[in-house]
Protein backbone atom coordinates (compact mmCIF):
# COMPACT_ATOMS: atom_id res chain seq x y z
CA UNK A 1 0.00 0.00 0.00
CA UNK A 2 1.36 3.44 -0.82
CA UNK A 3 1.05 5.62 2.23
CA UNK A 4 -0.15 9.16 1.77
CA UNK A 5 1.97 11.85 3.29
CA UNK A 6 1.10 12.87 6.79
CA UNK A 7 1.90 16.52 6.73
CA UNK A 8 0.95 17.53 10.22
CA UNK A 9 3.50 15.53 12.11
CA UNK A 10 7.07 16.27 11.37
CA UNK A 11 8.58 14.28 14.18
CA UNK A 12 7.22 10.87 13.11
CA UNK A 13 9.97 8.37 13.77
CA UNK A 14 10.78 6.13 10.88
CA UNK A 15 10.49 2.54 12.03
CA UNK A 16 12.73 -0.23 10.82
CA UNK A 17 10.81 -2.82 8.87
CA UNK A 18 11.80 -6.45 9.07
CA UNK A 19 13.20 -6.12 5.53
CA UNK A 20 15.48 -3.26 6.56
CA UNK A 21 16.45 -5.23 9.61
CA UNK A 22 17.34 -8.21 7.43
CA UNK A 23 19.41 -6.00 5.15
CA UNK A 24 21.35 -4.70 8.15
CA UNK A 25 22.16 -8.25 9.17
CA UNK A 26 23.11 -9.21 5.64
CA UNK A 27 25.41 -6.24 5.29
CA UNK A 28 27.38 -7.50 8.29
CA UNK A 29 27.99 -10.83 6.56
CA UNK A 30 31.14 -10.35 4.44
CA UNK A 31 30.86 -13.61 2.52
CA UNK A 32 27.28 -12.85 1.50
CA UNK A 33 28.25 -9.34 0.42
CA UNK A 34 31.10 -10.78 -1.63
CA UNK A 35 28.63 -13.15 -3.30
CA UNK A 36 26.26 -10.30 -4.01
CA UNK A 37 29.06 -8.17 -5.48
CA UNK A 38 30.26 -10.95 -7.77
CA UNK A 39 26.73 -11.59 -8.99
CA UNK A 40 26.08 -7.94 -9.67
CA UNK A 41 29.38 -7.72 -11.56
CA UNK A 42 28.60 -10.79 -13.67
CA UNK A 43 25.11 -9.60 -14.47
CA UNK A 44 26.47 -6.21 -15.45
CA UNK A 45 29.05 -7.80 -17.73
CA UNK A 46 26.45 -10.10 -19.26
CA UNK A 47 24.15 -7.19 -20.03
CA UNK A 48 26.90 -5.10 -21.62
CA UNK A 49 28.66 -7.94 -23.45
CA UNK A 50 27.80 -6.87 -27.04
CA UNK A 51 29.50 -3.55 -26.41
CA UNK A 52 32.43 -4.50 -24.23
CA UNK A 53 33.47 -7.91 -25.57
CA UNK A 54 37.03 -7.70 -26.97
CA UNK A 55 36.15 -9.56 -30.17
CA UNK A 56 33.01 -10.16 -32.15
CA UNK A 57 31.17 -13.33 -31.32
CA UNK A 58 31.44 -14.78 -34.83
CA UNK A 59 35.05 -13.83 -35.41
CA UNK A 60 37.24 -16.90 -35.82
CA UNK A 61 40.70 -17.67 -37.09
CA UNK A 62 41.24 -21.24 -38.10
CA UNK A 63 44.90 -20.64 -38.82
CA UNK A 64 45.52 -19.48 -35.30
CA UNK A 65 43.88 -22.51 -33.68
CA UNK A 66 43.99 -23.06 -29.94
CA UNK A 67 46.51 -20.81 -28.26
CA UNK A 68 47.20 -20.39 -24.54
CA UNK A 69 46.43 -17.06 -22.84
CA UNK A 70 48.35 -14.16 -24.33
CA UNK A 71 48.25 -10.38 -24.47
CA UNK A 72 45.94 -10.44 -27.49
CA UNK A 73 43.70 -13.17 -26.10
CA UNK A 74 43.68 -12.93 -22.31
CA UNK A 75 42.05 -16.31 -21.81
CA UNK A 76 43.44 -17.92 -24.94
CA UNK A 77 41.56 -19.14 -28.00
CA UNK A 78 39.71 -22.31 -28.81
CA UNK A 79 40.44 -24.74 -31.62
CA UNK A 80 38.71 -22.50 -34.14
CA UNK A 81 40.81 -19.55 -33.03
CA UNK A 82 37.90 -17.84 -31.29
CA UNK A 83 38.66 -15.62 -28.30
CA UNK A 84 37.77 -17.49 -25.09
CA UNK A 85 36.96 -14.36 -23.07
CA UNK A 86 34.40 -13.39 -25.67
CA UNK A 87 33.00 -16.91 -25.68
CA UNK A 88 32.69 -16.98 -21.91
CA UNK A 89 31.01 -13.57 -21.84
CA UNK A 90 28.43 -14.60 -24.43
CA UNK A 91 28.00 -17.99 -22.74
CA UNK A 92 27.40 -16.23 -19.45
CA UNK A 93 24.54 -14.29 -20.99
CA UNK A 94 22.72 -17.50 -21.80
CA UNK A 95 23.60 -19.32 -18.58
CA UNK A 96 22.56 -16.44 -16.35
CA UNK A 97 19.42 -15.83 -18.37
CA UNK A 98 18.42 -19.47 -18.06
CA UNK A 99 19.13 -19.37 -14.34
CA UNK A 100 17.18 -16.21 -13.62
CA UNK A 101 14.32 -16.51 -16.09
CA UNK A 102 13.61 -20.17 -15.39
CA UNK A 103 13.69 -19.41 -11.67
CA UNK A 104 11.35 -16.46 -12.18
CA UNK A 105 8.92 -18.74 -14.00
CA UNK A 106 9.19 -21.21 -11.13
CA UNK A 107 8.62 -18.44 -8.59
CA UNK A 108 5.57 -17.05 -10.30
CA UNK A 109 3.83 -20.38 -10.70
CA UNK A 110 5.02 -21.78 -7.38
CA UNK A 111 4.02 -18.82 -5.19
CA UNK A 112 0.61 -18.44 -6.77
CA UNK A 113 -0.14 -22.13 -6.72
CA UNK A 114 1.12 -22.68 -3.18
CA UNK A 115 -0.59 -19.59 -1.75
CA UNK A 116 -3.95 -20.53 -3.24
CA UNK A 117 -3.71 -24.14 -2.09
CA UNK A 118 -2.58 -23.16 1.39
CA UNK A 119 -5.23 -20.50 1.86
CA UNK A 120 -8.14 -22.42 0.38
CA UNK A 121 -7.38 -25.64 2.25
CA UNK A 122 -9.71 -28.60 2.17
CA UNK A 123 -10.56 -30.20 -1.15
CA UNK A 124 -9.03 -27.48 -3.33
CA UNK A 125 -5.77 -27.90 -1.49
CA UNK A 126 -5.91 -31.68 -1.79
CA UNK A 127 -6.48 -31.61 -5.56
CA UNK A 128 -3.84 -28.95 -6.20
CA UNK A 129 -1.20 -30.65 -4.13
CA UNK A 130 -1.92 -34.10 -5.59
CA UNK A 131 -1.21 -32.57 -9.00
CA UNK A 132 2.11 -31.37 -7.66
CA UNK A 133 2.83 -34.85 -6.31
CA UNK A 134 2.07 -36.41 -9.67
CA UNK A 135 4.39 -34.08 -11.57
CA UNK A 136 7.00 -34.67 -8.88
CA UNK A 137 6.78 -38.37 -9.49
CA UNK A 138 7.64 -38.01 -13.19
CA UNK A 139 11.33 -38.61 -13.77
CA UNK A 140 12.02 -34.99 -14.69
CA UNK A 141 15.17 -35.61 -16.72
CA UNK A 142 13.20 -37.82 -19.08
CA UNK A 143 10.43 -35.23 -19.06
CA UNK A 144 12.80 -32.51 -20.26
CA UNK A 145 14.52 -34.78 -22.77
CA UNK A 146 11.13 -35.71 -24.20
CA UNK A 147 10.12 -32.05 -24.49
CA UNK A 148 13.36 -31.25 -26.27
CA UNK A 149 13.03 -34.18 -28.64
CA UNK A 150 9.38 -33.56 -29.49
CA UNK A 151 9.42 -29.78 -29.87
CA UNK A 152 12.95 -29.35 -31.01
CA UNK A 153 15.56 -27.43 -29.13
CA UNK A 154 14.83 -23.81 -28.56
CA UNK A 155 15.72 -21.44 -25.80
CA UNK A 156 12.22 -20.50 -24.75
CA UNK A 157 11.26 -24.09 -24.35
CA UNK A 158 14.34 -24.65 -22.25
CA UNK A 159 13.30 -21.87 -19.88
CA UNK A 160 9.79 -23.21 -19.63
CA UNK A 161 10.83 -26.82 -19.21
CA UNK A 162 13.23 -26.11 -16.38
CA UNK A 163 10.82 -23.67 -14.73
CA UNK A 164 8.04 -26.23 -14.98
CA UNK A 165 10.09 -28.64 -12.93
CA UNK A 166 11.44 -26.23 -10.35
CA UNK A 167 8.15 -24.63 -9.32
CA UNK A 168 6.99 -27.77 -7.54
CA UNK A 169 9.20 -27.27 -4.51
CA UNK A 170 8.37 -23.56 -4.45
CA UNK A 171 4.68 -24.41 -4.31
CA UNK A 172 5.24 -26.81 -1.44
CA UNK A 173 7.25 -24.30 0.58
CA UNK A 174 4.72 -21.56 -0.07
CA UNK A 175 1.81 -23.77 0.89
CA UNK A 176 3.30 -24.82 4.21
CA UNK A 177 4.19 -21.20 5.00
CA UNK A 178 0.70 -19.97 4.20
CA UNK A 179 -0.87 -22.80 6.14
CA UNK A 180 0.96 -21.90 9.31
CA UNK A 181 0.44 -18.17 8.80
CA UNK A 182 -3.26 -18.51 8.28
CA UNK A 183 -3.65 -19.82 11.82
CA UNK A 184 -2.24 -16.53 13.07
CA UNK A 185 -4.60 -14.07 14.61
CA UNK A 186 -3.69 -11.21 12.28
CA UNK A 187 -5.22 -13.18 9.43
CA UNK A 188 -8.39 -13.73 11.44
CA UNK A 189 -8.37 -10.02 12.19
CA UNK A 190 -8.10 -9.31 8.46
CA UNK A 191 -11.06 -11.60 7.78
CA UNK A 192 -13.15 -9.90 10.42
CA UNK A 193 -12.28 -6.52 8.91
CA UNK A 194 -13.98 -7.77 5.76
CA UNK A 195 -10.97 -8.06 3.45
CA UNK A 196 -11.43 -10.31 0.42
CA UNK A 197 -9.45 -13.56 0.27
CA UNK A 198 -7.38 -12.24 -2.65
CA UNK A 199 -6.35 -9.16 -0.65
CA UNK A 200 -5.57 -11.22 2.42
CA UNK A 201 -3.32 -13.53 0.42
CA UNK A 202 -1.63 -10.65 -1.38
CA UNK A 203 -1.17 -8.22 1.47
CA UNK A 204 -1.02 -10.33 4.62
CA UNK A 205 0.17 -13.77 3.63
CA UNK A 206 2.65 -13.52 0.76
CA UNK A 207 4.86 -10.77 2.28
CA UNK A 208 5.17 -12.81 5.46
CA UNK A 209 5.96 -16.02 3.60
CA UNK A 210 8.63 -14.57 1.35
CA UNK A 211 11.64 -15.13 3.63
CA UNK A 212 12.05 -18.87 3.04
CA UNK A 213 11.07 -18.38 -0.61
CA UNK A 214 13.87 -15.87 -1.19
CA UNK A 215 16.37 -18.19 0.41
CA UNK A 216 15.18 -21.09 -1.67
CA UNK A 217 15.34 -18.95 -4.79
CA UNK A 218 19.03 -18.28 -4.33
CA UNK A 219 19.53 -22.02 -4.10
CA UNK A 220 17.30 -22.73 -7.10
CA UNK A 221 19.20 -20.48 -9.51
CA UNK A 222 22.43 -22.49 -9.23
CA UNK A 223 20.58 -25.78 -9.57
CA UNK A 224 18.86 -24.46 -12.70
CA UNK A 225 22.19 -23.31 -14.11
CA UNK A 226 23.69 -26.72 -13.39
CA UNK A 227 20.71 -28.34 -15.05
CA UNK A 228 21.26 -26.23 -18.15
CA UNK A 229 24.95 -27.06 -18.12
CA UNK A 230 24.11 -30.72 -17.79
CA UNK A 231 21.61 -30.64 -20.64
CA UNK A 232 24.02 -28.71 -22.83
CA UNK A 233 26.73 -31.16 -21.93
CA UNK A 234 24.47 -33.96 -23.14
CA UNK A 235 23.80 -31.98 -26.28
CA UNK A 236 20.16 -31.36 -25.39
CA UNK A 237 20.32 -27.79 -24.24
CA UNK A 238 21.85 -24.82 -25.97
CA UNK A 239 23.30 -25.71 -29.36
CA UNK A 240 26.00 -24.09 -31.44
CA UNK A 241 26.40 -21.47 -32.77
CA UNK A 242 24.89 -20.20 -29.53
CA UNK A 243 26.89 -21.07 -26.50
CA UNK A 244 26.61 -21.31 -22.75
CA UNK A 245 28.98 -22.11 -19.90
CA UNK A 246 27.73 -25.66 -19.90
CA UNK A 247 28.48 -26.03 -23.58
CA UNK A 248 31.91 -24.45 -23.21
CA UNK A 249 32.73 -26.79 -20.37
CA UNK A 250 31.54 -29.69 -22.46
CA UNK A 251 33.84 -28.73 -25.36
CA UNK A 252 36.66 -27.97 -22.97
CA UNK A 253 36.34 -31.38 -21.39
CA UNK A 254 36.86 -33.04 -24.76
CA UNK A 255 40.25 -31.49 -25.21
CA UNK A 256 41.27 -30.95 -21.64
CA UNK A 257 44.61 -32.77 -21.97
CA UNK A 258 45.93 -30.67 -24.85
CA UNK A 259 44.22 -27.37 -24.10
CA UNK A 260 43.40 -27.20 -20.36
CA UNK A 261 42.45 -23.49 -20.48
CA UNK A 262 39.39 -24.34 -22.57
CA UNK A 263 37.98 -26.17 -19.56
CA UNK A 264 39.56 -24.11 -16.79
CA UNK A 265 38.18 -20.63 -17.49
CA UNK A 266 34.52 -21.44 -18.18
CA UNK A 267 34.76 -23.75 -15.17
CA UNK A 268 35.99 -20.90 -12.98
CA UNK A 269 33.24 -18.57 -14.18
CA UNK A 270 30.56 -21.16 -13.47
CA UNK A 271 32.00 -22.14 -10.07
CA UNK A 272 32.38 -18.56 -8.96
CA UNK A 273 28.75 -17.83 -9.81
CA UNK A 274 27.50 -20.92 -7.99
CA UNK A 275 29.60 -20.18 -4.93
CA UNK A 276 28.39 -16.59 -4.87
CA UNK A 277 24.77 -17.66 -5.03
CA UNK A 278 25.29 -20.15 -2.24
CA UNK A 279 27.04 -17.61 -0.02
CA UNK A 280 24.27 -15.12 -0.66
CA UNK A 281 21.65 -17.77 0.04
CA UNK A 282 23.27 -18.71 3.36
CA UNK A 283 23.55 -15.05 4.32
CA UNK A 284 19.93 -14.42 3.46
CA UNK A 285 18.79 -17.41 5.47
CA UNK A 286 20.52 -16.05 8.56
CA UNK A 287 19.36 -12.50 7.89
CA UNK A 288 15.71 -13.41 7.36
CA UNK A 289 15.42 -15.74 10.34
CA UNK A 290 12.45 -14.13 12.09
CA UNK A 291 13.22 -15.63 15.46
CA UNK A 292 16.52 -13.77 15.53
CA UNK A 293 14.99 -10.61 14.09
CA UNK A 294 12.74 -9.94 17.06
CA UNK A 295 15.37 -9.03 19.59
Amino acid sequence: MTTPVIANIIEAEQGTSLWQDAWLRLSRNRLALFGLAVLVLFILIATLTPWIAPYSYTQHNLDLGATPPSAAHWLGTDIFGRDMLTQIMYGGRISLAVGFIATAVALLIGITWGAIAGYAGGRVDAVMMRMVDIIYALPFMIFIVLLMVVFGRNMLLLFLAIGAVEWLTMARIMRSQVQSLRQQEFVEAAISLGLSPATIVRRHLIPNALGPIIVYTTLTIPSVMLLEAFLSFLGLGVQPPQTSWGLLISFGAESMEEYPWLLLYPGIAMTLTLFSLNFLGDGLRDALDVRGAKD
Partner: peptide, 17 residues
Protein backbone atom coordinates in the same frame (compact mmCIF):
# COMPACT_ATOMS: atom_id res chain seq x y z
CA UNK B 1 2.30 -10.64 19.07
CA UNK B 2 0.29 -12.76 16.66
CA UNK B 3 -2.58 -10.42 15.95
CA UNK B 4 -0.63 -7.78 14.03
CA UNK B 5 0.91 -8.26 10.61
CA UNK B 6 4.67 -7.94 11.28
CA UNK B 7 5.31 -6.37 7.89
CA UNK B 8 2.84 -3.50 8.21
CA UNK B 9 3.43 -0.21 10.01
CA UNK B 10 0.96 1.14 12.55
CA UNK B 11 -0.25 3.45 9.82
CA UNK B 12 -0.91 0.64 7.34
CA UNK B 13 -2.61 -1.47 9.98
CA UNK B 14 -4.96 1.27 11.10
CA UNK B 15 -5.59 2.71 7.62
CA UNK B 16 -6.57 -0.62 6.11
CA UNK B 17 -10.08 -0.90 7.61
Amino acid sequence: FASLNPRMTVFDTLAEP
